[in-house]
């Protein structure tokens, strides 16, 4: 038998050993519970997967046949029955675009992007739809691009994991420091690793705060879904029109009054628009707004 010896630096060795320890612990204490949870999740997933897949394929076939109205209906039903899926929203955006409803196409691309912010297909089609509609491409700073590489939920889970790991290691160090030594983390080494982990956690926590703030900002984003939205001075039918916005343009919904929504369409400029002319990227947000 051939033995291979690898030179592993102490940090890696410590991480590997920690993982092995966690694995052993999981095997000893939580195997049955994990298996049970997996079984429940899997069975519930399978129960819903089959009809959703069938409906998805049917809508895709309708799309491929050029029956865009039928495809739109299929995708909308899927969303209604199962919730939101990035691929369904993306395909729905394509169907709306082919059907000539650019505003709704952009809306659904934006929604898909909220669920899968790193999907290049969604970025490409959103950019294409905006370009074809004569809308300017939003320019974003690098840090916003970085923050948008994960959606707020993903950032939250990442931060939660990092925080839990931090706490776990801290508790182990306090209660059973010999465990760390047993897995190869010597006391002199412990201090720099400890500081590094602490630093990373602080950074992640900072990011989640920033992401949360950004999420609050973008959460009220709305898209014009009619050919031309009239921005009014006041929330009444016969109010004077201040300006108009083209289909697919985005605004920030601030508050609702009757059938009208106060939107911020430029920095420092707000106007009222009929609720039927826009749709928020996060569905039902306006309904929840008093």
């Amino acid at each position: 038998m051939r033995h291979v010896t690898l030179d592993v630096n102490p940090c890696c060795r410590a991480a590997l050993c920690a993982a092995a320890a966690v694995h052993r612990t999981a095997l000893q204490f939580g195997t049955k519970l994990i298996l049970l949870l997996l079984l429940i999740l899997l069975s519930s997933g399978l129960l819903h997967a089959a009809p959703a897949d069938t409906a998805f394929d049917a809508a895709n076939r309708a799309f491929g046949s050029g029956k865009y109205t039928e495809a739109i209906s299929g995708y909308e039903n899927l969303l209604k029955q199962n919730g939101y899926s990035a691929s369904v929203l993306f395909n729905l955006g394509n169907a709306y675009y082919r059907h000539g409803q650019v505003g709704l196409a952009i809306l659904n691309y934006e929604r898909a992007l909220r669920l899968d912010p790193r999907d290049p297909d969604i970025h490409a089609n959103l950019k294409y739809a905006r370009t074809q509609s004569g809308l300017p491409q939003p320019s974003e700073r690098w840090w916003r691009v970085l923050l948008k590489s994960l959606n707020p939920s993903q950032w939250a889970w990442a931060a939660s994991f990092a925080f839990s790991l931090l706490c776990l290691l801290w508790v182990v160090r306090l209660v059973r420091p010999e465990w760390l030594q047993r897995v190869g983390v010597s006391t002199p080494l412990l201090t720099p690793i400890w500081r590094l982990i602490l630093f990373l956690n602080v950074a992640v926590l900072f990011l989640i705060v920033a992401c949360g703030a950004m999420s609050v900002q973008d959460r009220h984003e709305a898209i014009v879904i009619v050919k031309q939205a009239s921005l009014l001075v006041s929330p009444f039918d016969k109010s004077e029109v201040m300006t108009t916005l083209p289909e697919g343009d985005s605004v920030n919904a601030e508050k609702k009054y009757g059938d009208y929504v106060l939107v911020r369409y430029e920095k420092g400029k707000s106007a009222w628009v009929n609720q039927s002319q826009i749709a928020t990227v996060e569905p039902d947000l306006l309904k929840a707004t008093p």
Binding site: A86, L115, A124, E282
Partner: peptide, 15 residues
């Protein structure tokens, strides 16, 4: 326009 997707991604209840 990038073609439609053929794989169904997971569903979430809300945004």
């Amino acid at each position: 326009l990038v073609p439609i997707k053929v794989y169904l991604s997971p569903f979430v209840a809300n945004f």
